[in-house]
Every structure is written in C-alpha cells, then in structure tokens.
Computed example of a mutant assay.
Amino acid sequence: MIGTAGTLLRFQVGIERGIAGIDPDEFARFVRATYGGSQGWASRGAWRFRQVGPETKPDFTLLLVTPHTRDLICGSAPDRYTSCRIGNFVVLNVARWVHGVPRYGAALTTYRHYMINHETGHRLGRGHELCPGPGRPAPVMQQQTLGLHGCTANAWPYLNGQPYNGRLGQYDDPIPHS
C-alpha cells in the first residue's frame, strides 16, 4: 500500500511488447516510488495507491508505449510526442521516458517523476495549470513537456508539504515533431 489515508486507487503497470532496454520490475518500482514520494500524490492523505496483478480489476492502468501506440490509444490529438490520460489509462510515451525534452532544466529522473505525476494527476481529475510566475516552480499540472514559460522544472504536486497549484489553463505551445 502506498499512502496511509484517502481514496484508494488500484493500478496496474504495463510496458508495450517490443520495447527493449527497460526492465519491467524496475519501471514498476519507479512508479511506486513516485506515487509514494515525500511530495507525491499519496503524501498528504488524499490518495492511496495499490499496485495489483492481472487477476484484479484496476482503477487505472499506467502504460509505457511507443509514440505510434500513444497516438492509437490517445486518439483525438495524434502527435507522437506527448503522453496522455484517456479514460482509465495513464499513457507514457517511451520516447519522452528515454530522452526527456529539450530545455527542461532538470535531470531525466526528475522529468520521469513529472511524467508520472502529471498524467496521473489527470486521472485524479486535475486539469492543466499555468506558471504562477517567473522563477517559480512549475505546477505539476503545467504542460512542462511543451514549455516552462519562465517557471523552473518541478515533478511534484506538493511543495513544502502543501498542494502546489497554478491557475487553471494551458498555453498554446506547438508540439515538436518527434
């Protein structure tokens, strides 16, 4: 069990067949560590997470997939670049997992935590948010993959023990070609 209080969400983790070089157990451990991080979704009593096996119906499934499969699953906005959440699927683009994004300004590990937290945030009902001001950390629900807009990279929904949000909204950033 990840977290001590709040709504319990059961999740499964999957990696698309044919993706080489990513250890499924290590990937699942990273996902669990992200949810249970000291500033993660389960850290303040609103959410609990439990990874379940194929014999149990999950509340959502976190998938690591190729850009092509991302477009098939995510549907309405094919771009081969971003990740998405659609229904009960949290879909991470393996190209972003492996390479991150240009000018992110933080380590690839930080970006990976951001990917998980951002797309899971959508599954938790959260919308996109805007940078609260130059030099401030970006809210985890800001589309940091497409641009920081003066903010600094941030992977976590809580900062200093408090929810960290920006105003609802999104920028009209172009999506790079993969």
Rank of each mutant, 00 (worst) to 15 (best):
I2N: 11
P24Y: 05
P134D: 11
R103M: 06
H128E: 09
V140K: 01
F89C: 05
N117M: 02
T69K: 06
G40D: 04
S76G: 15
A155E: 02
R136N: 07
Y35F: 15
G125R: 09
G53M: 12
L146K: 11
L64N: 00
T56F: 12
A95E: 01
L8M: 13
P174V: 05
V65D: 06
W47G: 07
G135A: 08
I15G: 02
R167K: 14
E119M: 08
P78F: 09
W41I: 04
I15M: 08
R32K: 15
I22N: 04
P132S: 09
Y81H: 12
H113N: 06
H99E: 04
Y171E: 13
G3V: 03
V94W: 00
V13N: 11
L108E: 11
T61L: 05
W156Q: 01
V140H: 01
R29D: 15
G127L: 12
P24N: 06
Y158E: 07
I86D: 07
R10F: 09
L159T: 03
C151F: 01
E129F: 06
G40N: 05
P139V: 00
G87L: 06
L92T: 01
G100F: 10
Y164E: 00
Y35L: 15
S43R: 05
T109P: 13
C131A: 12
Y111L: 03
C131G: 07
G135W: 08
H68S: 10
G87F: 05
Q39T: 10
G3T: 04
V65C: 07
Y35R: 04
T109G: 15
G53N: 15
A153H: 04
G6N: 07
S178P: 13
S76V: 11
F30C: 11
Q51P: 08
G105K: 05
G37T: 06
A77Q: 12
F11G: 00
G53E: 15
H118D: 00
A95H: 00
W97E: 07
P137N: 10
T145V: 05
F11N: 00
H128N: 09
L72D: 12
Q144M: 06
V91D: 02
H113D: 03
Q142C: 04
H177G: 12
A33Q: 15
T7S: 12
E129M: 07
L159W: 02
K57N: 11
C151D: 01
T109K: 15
R85F: 04
L92N: 02
H177S: 14
F60E: 06
A153T: 03
S38H: 02
H177C: 08
V13M: 09
I175N: 10
P58A: 09
L124M: 15
R112M: 10
S178H: 08
L168S: 08
S38F: 01
T145W: 02
Q142T: 03
T152E: 07
Q162H: 13
V94G: 00
A138F: 00
H122V: 04
H177A: 13
C84T: 13
G45E: 14
R112N: 09
L72F: 08
M1N: 15
R29H: 11
R96A: 10
R96Q: 14
R44K: 13
T82L: 11
V31K: 00
R96N: 09
